[in-house]
């Protein structure tokens, strides 16, 4: 395996009883890449992602994330990745500052570091007036931006984003992607799932999962050429629909 890859997956499989959620998938994600992980509901995306972030044991197969084996070194994996999901990101009943302090704390950051990072984060996002407000009172878009910044606190090499922009307004959604680009530009690897097909176009490469298998994996441009269509949406519809 090449050390240059941030994520290296080989024959990864997960079964729940009779049901095979993830069926022998193999792929890799290069360092600094923005990798789109697409698929229909129930295609196995979430299961695959849970294995990669070290909270679910694979039935068979291997995967390395940040050069650590996800089965034997799950804890090292967790230390080196950031994770943000649509469902849970921040505590609504804590203020922005309290959230940052808490998440900095669980990643073992020093008090002084947390303080400077908090300040930097609030400056970057322009949240001076809101820093002491409860997260629950913020609009969803802001919340997601803060959550993304919080997942970066411990300087992880790879960031997993599970539908980070669902329901967010179009302008904030684009600002969010600018943040993603900026981090990728700094050399961080981004692994992202989304239901917005225009966002799939922003990725360097995308994979499309259908019924537990990766049916397509390439750059959006190549995929569109391959399927002779002019948007990722059509690629997706073609792939996922043909199977049904």
């Amino acid at each position: 395996m090449k050390a240059a890859n941030a994520i290296q997956v080989k024959n990864l499989t997960k079964t729940f009883g009779e049901f095979t959620a993830v069926n022998n998938i193999s792929f890799h994600v290069g360092k600094g890449e923005v990798f789109g992980f697409l698929g229909a509901n129930g295609a196995g995306k979430t299961t695959a992602m849970k294995m990669l972030i070290g909270i679910l044991k694979p039935t068979s197969g291997k995967a390395q994330v940040a050069n650590y084996d996800i089965t034997s070194h799950a804890n090292d994996v967790k230390k080196n990745i950031g994770y943000m999901s649509q469902r849970f990101s921040l505590y609504n009943d804590l203020t922005i500052k309290e959230n940052i302090t808490f998440f900095g704390g669980i990643y073992g950051l020093k008090k002084a570091t947390i303080k400077t990072k908090t300040q930097a984060l609030i400056n970057d996002l322009g949240l001076h007036d809101e820093a002491n407000k409860l997260v629950g009172s913020l609009p969803l878009g802001w919340k997601q931006k803060v959550a993304f910044s919080v997942s970066l606190l411990h300087d992880p090499q790879i960031i997993f984003l599970d539908e980070p922009t669902g329901g967010v307004d179009p302008i904030t959604r684009r600002q969010f992607w600018e943040m993603i680009y900026r981090e990728a530009h700094k050399g961080k690897t981004i692994f992202v799932t989304t239901h917005y097909m225009d966002e799939a176009e922003y990725c360097d490469r995308v994979s499309i999962m259908v019924e537990g298998k990766i049916e397509a994996l390439d750059s959006p441009k190549n995929l569109k050429t391959q399927y002779k269509v002019d948007s990722m949406n059509q690629v997706f519809l073609k792939l996922a629909r043909n199977i049904e």
């Binding site: 229909a40 509901n41 295609a43 539908e163 669902g166 097909m197 519809l237 996922a240 049904e244």
Partner: peptide, 10 residues
């Protein structure tokens, strides 16, 4: 259609 994949949405 919130949170639903493009195929089901269509």
């Amino acid at each position: 259609t919130t949170g639903v994949d493009p195929v089901s949405r269509k």
